[in-house]
Amino acid sequence: MDRDINGILKDAVAGIAGIGGLGSNAAVALARMGIGRLVLADYDIVDESNLNRQHYMIRHLGMKKVHAIKQIIGEINPQVHIESHDIYVDGCNAPEIFKDADIVIEAFDVASCKAEFVNSILGNTGKKVIAASGLAGYGPANSIVTRRVTERLYIVGDGVSGLSEGEKLLASRVAIAANHQANLAVRLLIGEEI
């Protein structure tokens, strides 16, 4: 990266709603790319069932996700300023939580929560949102793509995959999608469009 891009990213603020499989991996990717500030929101704790796809370790079990990811990012890039919100994010509080973010990544598990969050941010702010959908299981990695849906909404995923009965969430496609989200956030922050 040249100095201009480094400077832009150092001054940028990215928000992530949900710090599970998508959100924890996207946060780590953004920290590694030199983002200056992250606004992170999640109310959940790290559970053993999270370890197969989320960027946490055994030592984080029982910790609030926002505190665990802050610790991880501090070990990767202590220059990143973390603003963490230990709160259930919904359509009512989302615009206030992410008011300082230049761009927002949606990283929820539940479709109705995804829709409520995206609609709230798009309807109440001028911010761009990078959402994710259709990436469960272990299907083809190359089917995960990034699409521009509207002027301010982008969706990462294959658009079709759901979790079949007996199938479990796996790290590979979740991490691919999270890195698509982080990569697009950086592209948009430095002025590129897709």
Rank of each mutant, 00 (worst) to 15 (best):
M1P: 06
D2F: 11
R3S: 15
L9Q: 10
D11A: 15
A14E: 02
A14M: 07
I16H: 06
G18Q: 04
G21D: 06
L22S: 03
L22C: 08
A26C: 05
A26M: 06
A26L: 02
A27I: 07
G34R: 01
I35T: 11
A41Y: 03
D44K: 09
Y56T: 02
Y56Q: 00
Y56V: 00
M57K: 12
M57W: 11
H67R: 14
I69C: 05
K70M: 13
K70L: 14
K70Y: 10
I72C: 13
I72M: 09
I72V: 15
I72P: 03
E75H: 14
I76Q: 07
V80L: 14
V80D: 06
H81V: 15
E83W: 03
E83G: 02
S84L: 11
S84Q: 13
H85I: 06
I87V: 15
V89R: 01
V89S: 08
D90M: 11
F98G: 00
K99D: 13
I105A: 05
A107L: 12
F108Y: 13
F108D: 04
V110Q: 13
A115M: 14
E116H: 09
E116T: 13
N119H: 11
L122Y: 07
N124E: 15
A131R: 00
A131M: 11
A132E: 02
G134C: 04
G139V: 01
G139N: 04
V149T: 04
E151I: 00
E151D: 14
L153Y: 05
D158A: 10
V160Q: 12
V160W: 11
S161D: 09
E165M: 13
E167I: 03
S172C: 07
R173Q: 09
R173S: 03
V174E: 02
A177L: 02
N179M: 05
N179F: 03
H180E: 12
V186Q: 01
V186G: 00
V186D: 01
R187G: 11
L188W: 05
G191A: 09
E192G: 02
